[in-house]
Design a protein around this nucleic acid. Structure first.
Lengths: 260, 260
DNA sequence: AGAAGGACCAGTGGTCCGTA
DNA sequence: AGAAGGACCAGTGGTCCGTA
């Protein structure tokens, strides 16, 4: 039951009275909602209505105690709810470390927190697999995303997590540089896409100083080792390995000119 | 170029004058053949005729120096060849360590040698991947089997290798027990299927003495770590972990009654 | 325009079963 | 019958692109 741990990590303080999953289920709704579109029929959380009467199958079902996180602006405060469709997570904005995202936005601390939630889900999947004597995943796989969704973490999905993996990698590998990059890009008023692109550069610098083996760098880090190395990051490291000469950097990774 | 290494390992002495791959290619045939069925049109080694003019693509092509092994009775001595179809490898028979299989049969030393060939192919695939900065497999994957086939090792295929993995595992983990099992089953005149089934039992015993973690056992062994743990072996270990009581064995793995 | 994520796709692990 | 392996299939890693 990581729910409490995760609830405790709520970082933006805008959700209203974080309710326990059991209570929410008992209420017959999903807890408060702050959706833009009020919309149509029940599209979200049909899971809740069919939950009992599963179990015991040979599947990936999480335990009853669900995994609901109403942290931050994560579309989870109080508000018009009930019938819902077409809801998406609020988009990310560049925030400084510790900063709360205002309005219908989510901050980068929240983004990084999602990666830690995935790790918790992976651990649960691993424990179940070990119990059953089944193959035990070492990475965040489709199975883990499926499990997270069933556990109620509908705001976690594969495309999103893969999209920002390298940003999380920088956060893990050099938090100071990561923090500084966030401050600079917020200061400049850059959007999330620009910040995301900028995260590659210092990572390539880190790889340069460690023999260009980005897989080894990921695998050596306890929180990072459960994530696949993003294709683009791998390609950048490879391209630069063949480009950088003996005059290569020994500094913070900003001495190398990268093609963006 | 593992060809020489592999040629040197030829263990049954029935192939006639092992020819180098280049010479074979130049001869425009596949080297000698000892097929039962002489048969139909060119079905084997159409690869040879289309070989030049590939390369440089983004694919898994092995280098020009092919990988041809005419060891043992591996359907590779001299004989009627040319037009071929429906050829299969000679079936395995239970042989003692060092024993040459007679007739149109292959022995178990040859079987185990195939696993070592696969390791060599994996290493080649890994080197290519590292060179290109691509994902680097740690196991014998489909990609490796595809590479082996293109390199000329048409006698290596996934179903066969997966079928006997646990037999190879026993050979790696306790060669003495493996050898003794071979002698006993040969003595009794058992067929390969019976020997294969019997290999599970001592493996479960090994797992019992090492905390039942068959994945850890595979991963800790340098030759075994590149193979996926077979489903049935994993299931047996799991089933017995929950069955064996405190009176569990400390002996050679034959004290536990297994359900076959 | 910038961004979130459903849904698709090529190639995987796994092994069945038509074949000889 | 015993055995080798082509070929299939469910579920994977990867990410595009229709959506809002």
């Amino acid at each position: 039951t990581t729910a409490n741990v995760l609830d405790a990590l709520s970082q933006e303080g805008l959700s209203e009275e974080p309710v326990m999953q059991q209570e929410k289920e008992a209420m017959g709704s999903v807890g408060g909602c702050t959706w833009d579109s009020v919309g149509l029929a029940e599209g979200r959380r049909q899971k809740t209505t069919t939950k009992t009467s599963r179990r015991g199958h040979q599947n990936d079902d999480p335990e009853e105690e669900g995994e609901e996180n109403d942290e931050g602006n994560n579309n989870g405060g109080g508000g018009e709810c009930g019938s819902t469709e077409r809801q998406r997570e609020h988009p990310f904005i560049v925030t400084e470390p510790g900063e709360v995202a205002r309005g219908k936005k989510n901050g980068l601390d929240y983004l990084f927190h999602l990666y830690e939630q995935c790790k918790d889900f992976l651990i649960q999947v691993q424990n179940i697999a070990k119990d059953r004597g089944e193959k035990c995943p070492t990475k965040v796989t489709n199975q883990v995303f499926r499990y997270a969704k069933k556990a109620g973490a509908i705001y976690i999905n594969k495309p999103k997590m893969r999209h920002y993996v390298h940003c999380y990698a920088l956060h893990c590998l050099d938090e100071e540089v990561s923090n500084e990059l966030r401050r600079v890009f917020k200061q400049r008023g850059e959007n999330v896409g620009a910040w995301r692109q900028a995260c590659y550069k210092p990572l390539v610098g880190i790889a340069a100083r460690q023999g260009w083996d980005i897989d080894a760098i990921f695998n050596a880090h306890p929180r990072l080792s459960i994530w696949y190395v993003p294709t683009k990051l791998r390609q950048l490291c490879h391209a630069h390995r063949n480009t950088v000469t003996g005059a290569a950097s020994t500094s913070l990774g900003f001495t190398i000119n990268l093609p963006f």
